[in-house]
Design a protein around this nucleic acid. Sequence first.
DNA 1: GTCTATACGTGGATAGAC
DNA 2: GTCTATCCACGTATAGAC
Lengths: 196, 196
Amino acid sequence: MSVKDKHGLPEENSRRMELIRAAARLFRDQGYERTTVRDTGNAVGLQSGSLFYHFRTKEEILVAVMALGITATTEQLAEAIASVHTPREKLAALFHVHLNSLLGDNQHALEVMLYEWRSVSDAAKPGLIVLRDRYEALWQTVLDEAAADGLVKPDTRLLRRTLLGSLHWSVQWFRSNGELNVNELADRMLALVLLK
Amino acid sequence: MSVKDKHGLPEENSRRMELIRAAARLFRDQGYERTTVRDTGNAVGLQSGSLFYHFRTKEEILVAVMALGITATTEQLAEAIASVHTPREKLAALFHVHLNSLLGDNQHALEVMLYEWRSVSDAAKPGLIVLRDRYEALWQTVLDEAAADGLVKPDTRLLRRTLLGSLHWSVQWFRSNGELNVNELADRMLALVLLK
DNA sequence: GTCTATACGTGGATAGAC
DNA sequence: GTCTATCCACGTATAGAC
């Protein structure tokens, strides 16, 4: 976890970060459009006027939420991949990190990224796309190595897309009080694509 | 295609149906919250006041859009399954019908179903859930038969969820002017899960 | 940095004429 | 069935005091 990075996400003064986290929760629970700037301010004890000291527009908050979710997940994945050595272990890391992030640590921010894309202005999209592509590039590399070892089918570009779709969709049905925990789910989803 | 069914979707007087289709497109392009009742009315040449002759609330339109998307797809899938005989062919039908619906015929309504769920009131959810469950039950049956024949792995409940997630996600990246057409995509996605 | 007050636009929905 | 006119609530954002 770096102390600072580019893309408007230095590990910022805590007021701003507090707002981003509160907004992430609200945007994911109620949707971005239905969440008012008053709601967002109030969630950290601010009046709506004060919120605009920290962000110039409501959309700036949305973008910050998304950037936080995807960069945090990317960092976690990069670390996890670096800490193991076999293609098989790296492949497993894809599933474990993704699900633990999406269903745990970065749940709200990532769901906002998945479901509020339409509310992002064209001006802000490119910056977020760069972050997303960086994450998916990690996936592609690991999948290619796994395919080279015969662990998964060789159509890795399509495989990447289908797997990410499968994992994203888990937020719609996974319940942490159900029969499976997150890591068990990761293992079973991995088992569905493993060839050996 | 039935002339009439329950769930508020008789093959209705065409004005109402026109509005539902126009709303589907607008809701999917702009999002439900950002689409105004004025937009929706205007799309079929009506003033907003007149729209409320056809629907009591804006939400009633949303629910009608979703119900249309899922019932139309379910009907198409039921027909497709009934018209072939081997587990292998039925399995292929899941992919082909789903993608042709989601990326073609019922694109707008289904994307609304996938992305605007949060805007549905608790009162309206149960009716839609019934429709969704009916669709997924068809999937489950076909996957169980396929697993019994050794065509796919036996963890069919999880398989159903992962496959539906994969297919849903295709709307995010599939482009009809790309290298693949919809049916080729269906075949390649099928190939990724086939064991033989 | 945060507050209060407020400008200004636009939203969903209704009433009543035609 | 559709229109016009309109109600009233609520949205984002700004200004200026503290």
